[in-house]
């Protein structure tokens, strides 16, 4: 096998993203040949060490420098709006739904990316539900009416505004300070990011209603894919399926652990213990989220996506619609 070792360059998740990058992704690529048995040597670079912005990943792949990218869906939807279909606001309130939606939509995404970007999708996984942290007594989602809520993207902004809150876009490092000074009342992120950034020090409640799942995936250039014979392709796909399954499971366990830590429950193994009030979403909350999905996120996105590809929203409705119970 030594005579024709293949060399691949891989652009990974930012180092700053924490445990999934350091415990699952990086080890996988660093032991790639052993894990897959394929004669492939990997040069793995976290995206934030290269100076490449994560919005540019698809273009960088098209340029041909990287063979495989740990694709961040939300930033890259700038060039490929179809990616957003995996994680519309309100679509994935929990892990189980996210998994069903991903399995249903992945073939559509893959086909689209192959067509427009010469890129094949080897799977997708979430950082996990992005939930609400508030320095105010909230007992349901509608209680954020009149509050200032930090959001990290535009779709979320529209969503929180639909229930009468003020959306404040703000970069992650500034949130802690703003919460403690009352510049914002609530902020949205994943529970383990919140824990490691110390948000529970400056908030009182966490509302475990997932507004987005922060999806990511592994995209390989068709050029690299076609370097392999069909057996090798199958081996590669299997290896990535295993990795994706592992990450799904790990992501969920990190999520639950962080929820425990934030609210002072056990087991808490990966974070600092705090004493937030844990607020479970009510039936009304879930209904409201579903409402927002149908009336806000979906139509807004469908407009943009259909401009790039006329079949976009029709494909989504055909594949994702049934699994989430749309007629």
């Amino acid at each position: 096998a030594q005579e024709n070792t293949i060399q691949w360059k891989v652009l990974g998740q930012p180092l700053a993203t924490g445990k999934i990058q350091s415990q699952k992704e990086q080890p996988f690529f660093e032991n790639f040949a052993e894990r897959t048995g394929l004669p492939i040597e990997i040069n793995y670079q976290p995206v934030d060490t290269t100076g490449i912005k994560d919005t540019e990943q698809l273009r960088i792949m098209k340029a041909g420098l990287f063979d495989l990218v740990s694709l961040r869906m939300s930033p890259n939807s700038r060039d490929a709006p179809v990616l957003t279909g995996l994680d519309l606001v309100g679509l994935n309130p929990d892990y189980a739904t996210a998994r069903t939606v991903t399995d249903a939509y992945l073939p559509v995404l893959d086909e689209q990316l192959q067509e427009s970007f010469d890129v094949k999708l080897l799977g997708a996984w979430p950082f996990g539900p992005q939930i609400l942290f508030c320095d105010a007594p909230v007992s349901s989602f509608s209680d954020i009416e009149g509050l200032k809520v930090r959001v990290y993207d535009q779709n979320l902004a529209k969503f929180v505004e639909s229930v009468g809150a003020t959306a404040v876009p703000m970069s992650f490092p500034e949130v802690h300070q703003s919460l403690s000074l009352g510049a914002v009342d609530c902020a949205i992120t994943g529970p383990s990011s919140a824990n490691s950034a110390g948000w529970p020090e400056v908030t009182t409640h966490q509302l475990t209603l997932g507004m987005g799942s922060a999806m990511n995936g592994y995209a390989i250039s068709l050029k690299a894919w076609n370097q392999l014979d069909s057996n090798q392709q199958e081996t590669l796909q299997t290896a990535f399926n295993e990795l994706n399954d592992e990450i799904w499971e790990y992501s969920e366990s990190l999520y639950n652990d962080a929820l425990n830590c934030n609210s002072g429950q056990q087991p808490c193994e990966t974070g600092t213990e705090y004493d937030l009030v844990n607020v479970e979403p009510t039936e009304a909350d879930l209904a409201q989220v579903r409402e927002a999905l149908l009336n806000i996120s979906l139509p807004t996105w469908a407009d943009i996506c259909d401009q790039a590809n006329p079949d976009c929203s029709a494909n989504w409705e055909a594949n994702v619609g049934p699994v989430i119970g749309l007629e």
Binding site: I52, K53, E56, A63, G64, L65
Partner: peptide, 12 residues
């Protein structure tokens, strides 16, 4: 391919 990948970096 290195040359082409500078483009998105410059805009970024």
């Amino acid at each position: 391919p290195f040359m082409n990948s500078i483009s998105p970096v410059v805009w970024g």
